[in-house]
Design a protein around this nucleic acid. Structure first.
Lengths: 240, 240
DNA sequence: GGTTATTTGTGCGTATGTATG
DNA sequence: CCATACATACGCACAAATAAC
C-alpha cells in the first residue's frame, strides 16, 4: 500500500517548472530538457511529465515542436520598483509594448483607508480608475488608482482620453510625481481576477499598494496593483 | 419590483465587521462569533454572512479554519526592504522578538542558477542553510541561504552556533554586507511549506530572492525567502 | 541529399485510489 | 456490499517530425 497523495505529481511538476520559468532559470526561447530527462529528474514516468507540460502549454508558457523539443514562449516581465514607478517606461525598458485597458472609472467618496492614504478628510470625493495593464497584449496586472477629485478637476475625462496615469496627471497640472511608499504582499486570485488576468482561480498574485506625491509632497494618487506572479517579477536594484 | 439598494447587505456587514476590527472590538487572534450567531445578529441568512466574511478573508483581515471558527489575522509584520536587510533588526524595529529555527544545513555543489547568482564557477561548493524565521514565536517566513563554501571556511559551523546570518558572516571575516539586488514574486504554499508556516496549502506566499555582497562587491550570500503573506507586508520607504 | 539518432505525439494495457449511486 | 465511473500513474511500442552528420 502506498501512502495517499494530497496533490497530484503532475501538478507539483507543473508548479516546479512554472517557478523555474518565473525565476528565469529557463527563459524566453530556451529549450527545456527533453521529456525523458525531466522524467528522470523528477523520478516519474514520461506520461506524467507530459501531463505537466500540457498544462503549461495550455497556459501559453511553453510551446512544443515534435522532433525538436519544448520551448519557453513567455518571459516574465521585470518590473522595477523605486521612487519613480512608471508602467509605460517599465514595460518599454523590458522590450515589450505597454497598453492599458479601462475597466471602469468611478466617482465616489473615500473610505477610511483611502482617505488616510491620501491625507484627505473622510468621505472626500475620489476618482477611482479600475483597469488592466498589458505587455505585448498579455495581461500582467489589475490595478485601481484613486485620485483626489477636488485637487484634480477633469481627471476622470483625462483618464478616459489618455488611459495613462502620467499623462492624465500632467493634463491636470501635475507635471511630475514620485512614490513615497510601497507596500508589497501576496494574494490568491479570485475567479474574476483570474478571468481578467487569463490565469486560474487560486493562482498567486503580487499585491502592492503605493502612494504618489507631487513635488510639494501632496498625495496625488493611491494605487493598488495585483500582478500575475507567473508573468511578473518585481525588482529592486539598489543604486551604487 | 423592489427598489435596488445602493449597497448590498453583505457589504454593509463587511463594513461593520471591518469597523469592529479597526476599533479592536475583535483583535489579533480573537475568534469571531460563529457564522450562525453573526447571521442572527444581523438578521440575515448565513450565506450572506459568509459572503461578507469571504471578502474580509480575501483582504487578509480574517482567516477561517474548518471546524474551528473564523479568526482575526495577526497584524501584519512590516518588513522593510532596502540596501541593508537584516532580519533581526527588522523584526525588533517592529516591536517583536526575532528568532530563527534551523531546519537543515547542507553542503553541496551549486546549480546553474545558484552559481550565476553568486558569480561562482559551475558546481562550486556551497553551504546551504534552510530555516524558519519567527516573530514572537510565530513563523513568518521560510528561507534558504546559499554561501560560497571556499570563500567562507567554517561557515556551516558558525551558522549552527549562531543561527544568524549576520553573526555567522562576521565570524568568517565578513564584517558588513549590503544587498545589491532583490527580486519579488508570489507563490502558492505547498503542503510542507504550509505546515512549517502554520498556514494552509494554497495560501499566498511572498517569494523574494536576493544577493548580498561584501564591501568589495564580492557576493557572499544568495538567499530565497518565502513569507506568509497573511502575516507579512514588505515595505519600501523611499528616503527623502 | 540521404541516413540516422533524437525527440515529441499517440495508442493500448495495467493498476490504484476516490467518489457516486 | 457491489457496480460503475473517473483521475492518476506506470510501462511498452511505434509513428512522425526534426536535427545532425
Amino acid at each position: 500500500m502506498t501512502a495517499p497523495r494530497k496533490t497530484p505529481i503532475w501538478k507539483e511538476i507543473s508548479r516546479a517548472l512554472r517557478a523555474d520559468i518565473a525565476e528565469k532559470i529557463y527563459t524566453e526561447g530556451d529549450k527545456l530538457p527533453t521529456e525523458a530527462e525531466l522524467a528522470a529528474r523528477f523520478g516519474v514516468n514520461r506520461h506524467t511529465v507530459r501531463h505537466a507540460l500540457k498544462s503549461l502549454i495550455e497556459d501559453g508558457l511553453l510551446r512544443s515542436r515534435r522532433g525538436a523539443g519544448v520551448y519557453v514562449t513567455a518571459a516574465p516581465t521585470d518590473y522595477p520598483i523605486g521612487r519613480r514607478v512608471r508602467f509605460h517606461q517599465n514595460v518599454l525598458a523590458g522590450g515589450q509594448t505597454p497598453q492599458k485597458r479601462i475597466l471602469h472609472i468611478d466617482h465616489r467618496p473615500a473610505s477610511d483607508g483611502e482617505a488616510q492614504a491620501l491625507k484627505l478628510p473622510l468621505r472626500a470625493p475620489l476618482v477611482v480608475y479600475h483597469g488592466i495593464s498589458l505587455a505585448d497584449d498579455h495581461p500582467i496586472a489589475l490595478f485601481s488608482s484613486h485620485f483626489p477629485a477636488e485637487l484634480l478637476p477633469g481627471m476622470a475625462d483625462a483618464l478616459r482620453e489618455t488611459s495613462g496615469v502620467t499623462e492624465a496627471l500632467k493634463r491636470c497640472g501635475v507635471s511630475d510625481y514620485t512614490r513615497i511608499s510601497t507596500r508589497i504582499s501576496a494574494r490568491i486570485a479570485t475567479a474574476t481576477q483570474a478571468n481578467h488576468l487569463h490565469t486560474q482561480e487560486g493562482a498567486a498574485l503580487i499585491y502592492t499598494t503605493g502612494v504618489n506625491v507631487d513635488p510639494d509632497g501632496t498625495p496625488v494618487e493611491f494605487g493598488q496593483t495585483w500582478f500575475a506572479a507567473d508573468r511578473v517579477t518585481l525588482t529592486f536594484d539598489s543604486p551604487d
